[in-house]
Computed example of a mutant assay.
Amino acid sequence: MIVVRMPRLWGSARLGFLGTAFLLGGCATATPWQVPYNISALHSSVPAEAQKASHNAQVVLQLASVSAPSWLDTNTYQYHLLYQNPQMLLSYRDARWVGTPAEMLDMRLLQHLQQSQHWKAVLSGQSSGAAQYVLRLHLSNFVVNFTAPQAGQALIAGTATLLNAHNYQVIAQQSFRQTVPLKTASAAAGAAAMTQAGSHFVGAVSAWVDQYQ
């Protein structure tokens, strides 16, 4: 993990997530036990009209555990200073995520698909139930990019693949990319933007796979 000294602009207070509540936290001087940021929504993020899907759905969908490259297999809060060194991946000294990006998105996507009611059932990757389709999501990017000392955006990108659960033949595949601008150049603003990007991302993946039920 690369640790850097934060510029003065990082002195603004940061908001940390505890479930859906917001707590105030420090910046680069935050204590080691600071509550980690969490993009996982505990409330319904599916529009009411989407929840009125047909109750005659007969297809069971299984969401395989979301995968990600090795550099994302961490709860470290990673970011780029694109205006200084676009290739260097940096990490906050104290700020961190409540889980890995794959774990957080897995939870959000499973919840979203289950609430949409487009499927007879949506099973987690650990479930032993019988399914007709398997949805695999490979996360390729989950990072906050600061494009200037006082500007930046959250980025989530990945590829979804829908498979036949019986012979594992590919039914469809689609790439997704969501960005949300930061309101301020801070870790808290990055986490808030990442939460919003996560909502857009899982919504887009869910809407895409729902058309195959």
Rank of each mutant, 00 (worst) to 15 (best):
I39L: 08
S65Q: 08
Q132A: 11
P86I: 02
R136A: 15
A189V: 10
F201Q: 13
P7A: 09
S67V: 09
L89V: 14
N38A: 00
V46G: 03
Q115W: 15
K183M: 11
Y83T: 01
Q111Y: 10
A207Q: 15
L163N: 03
A64D: 09
Q115N: 15
N56T: 07
L135I: 07
Q62R: 14
L9P: 04
G19H: 11
Q34A: 14
A157N: 07
L15S: 10
N56D: 11
S40H: 11
H166C: 01
T76G: 04
N56P: 01
Y133Q: 08
Q58R: 06
A13G: 06
W97G: 03
W119K: 03
M194W: 02
V98K: 14
L72P: 08
A64P: 06
M1P: 12
N145C: 05
S40Y: 05
H166I: 02
Q213T: 13
H138C: 01
A130G: 07
W71G: 02
G25E: 11
L63S: 06
L155W: 07
T20Q: 13
H80R: 11
F142W: 14
V59L: 03
V60K: 04
Q58V: 00
S127W: 02
P69R: 04
G99W: 04
P101W: 01
P69F: 00
H138Y: 06
M6S: 07
P149G: 03
A197G: 03
M6N: 11
W71K: 05
A68Y: 02
